[in-house]
Amino acid sequence: MSDKKGKDKLNIRELIKAKGILGAIKDLMLSSQVWSSFFRHGLEDTPKTRMQTVISNSFLHLHPAKVKRHAPLFKFTWCMGGITFFTFLILTITGVFLMFYYHPNVRDAYWDMKGLEYHVPFGLLLRNLHRWGAHLMVITVWFHMFRVFMTGSYKPPREFNWGIGVVLLVFTLLLSFTGYLLPWDQLGFWAVTVGTNMARATPGLGHEGPFGELLGMTAYNDVRFALLGGSMVGGNALLRAYIWHCIGLPLIVSAFLIVHFWRIRKDGGISGKL
């Protein structure tokens, strides 16, 4: 035991002599158990480490180690799917920060917006990032769908994933729509009033829709009432929008995203001829 210790010390001295103090620290760090438990492969640029970089990282290994030569071409992907996912991540992060400063009740909601503007450090920037990021996500989702259509990438074997994509498109719009109400200003209030008024006209399920009255629908038991938790946009609607926006819809979207990404790989990778 003591022998080994002496040997180690000698090595360190030699190491410092050979590589200098910084070089020795770097060497020791890279060969330590802690480092090699974090990173399973070296840093030299070889085909092997290139592939290890991807498959030994839990986030990067969403990708296969190798992709088809044309897959990274901009003209095939327009980067739209990836950018959409990236905006989703930005929105999740800024959204969590916004939740720290927001009370989902009629009395506080609007003044929390003012608070973000005047009292919270970078609060306005945070809200701006979240708001414009949401608009960007809606736009990029549409462009993503358009690109996938134009390259015919919904054709077999990707039919199912196109369906998942349509679901994600709808949920993106719903996420944006539920978020619209939360500032509790005139803009959001009336936009959501106009939007949910449509639900009144649902055939059979809304009290103003075809056959709604025949089936016993009133303003107090139809589908709009279920959405708003009341017959008009009020405190309950704000709370429901908040919970759908921050918990319900993101969870659902995440589940579909997992399937969407997994299926991309199973169905032959991103873009291009199969």
């Binding site: 290139r50 592939m51 991807v54 990067l60 990708h63 190798k66 992709v67 030569r69 897959a71 990274p72």
Partner: peptide, 8 residues
């Protein structure tokens, strides 16, 4: 094929 890292 190409390596995902770095090309993609």
């Amino acid at each position: 094929e190409l390596e995902t890292w770095p090309y993609l």
